[in-house]
Amino acid sequence: MSQRQQILSLLLEVEREMRALDLWSETMPSAEALMSQQPFCVDTLDFHEWVQWLLLPRMEQIIVEQMPLPTSCDIAPMAEEAFKQIEAETDQLLQLIADLDRAVTEGQ
């Protein structure tokens, strides 16, 4: 499996796990919330919203359009902190995000 195929597969698995944990929303945040200049939009979105509405679509776009991949990816530490606030069992989701970090970074 190529690096891009692996990343695309992980993006789908992250979405599937977020849906299973009821961390997926059918309602998109406002345009203003999505345009935050803060890392992970911490001032306007919950972390899982940032993953759903910004990270996953952007990474998919990069893969589909054959754009250069980021030179590094280190989202797992933020995910660990953010998911401490969630009642659901997030271990599998955290592992998938760590796997995504590795898949992006190791190919560089």
Rank of each mutant, 00 (worst) to 15 (best):
30 S>F: 05
64 V>R: 09
4 R>D: 03
74 D>Q: 13
80 E>S: 08
108 Q>P: 05
32 E>A: 13
85 Q>E: 13
87 E>A: 13
30 S>D: 06
39 P>C: 02
34 L>C: 05
65 E>L: 09
44 T>K: 07
20 A>D: 04
13 E>L: 15
87 E>Y: 11
58 R>H: 04
87 E>R: 13
38 Q>T: 07
9 S>K: 12
70 P>A: 00
71 T>N: 11
26 E>P: 10
67 M>P: 00
21 L>I: 08
93 L>P: 10
101 D>F: 08
58 R>C: 00
6 Q>N: 12
104 V>H: 06
63 I>P: 06
41 C>G: 00
13 E>Q: 15
76 A>W: 07
95 Q>V: 04
94 L>Q: 10
30 S>T: 15
37 Q>E: 11
49 E>P: 03
88 A>T: 09
38 Q>M: 13
12 L>R: 13
32 E>Q: 14
2 S>R: 09
47 F>T: 02
103 A>M: 07
80 E>N: 04
14 V>P: 02
2 S>L: 08
52 Q>P: 03
11 L>C: 14
65 E>D: 10
2 S>D: 10
72 S>H: 14
57 P>A: 01
55 L>D: 00
38 Q>F: 06
5 Q>K: 15
12 L>M: 09
60 E>K: 13
26 E>F: 09
90 T>G: 02
81 E>H: 09
99 D>H: 07
59 M>S: 03
56 L>F: 02
81 E>S: 11
2 S>Y: 03
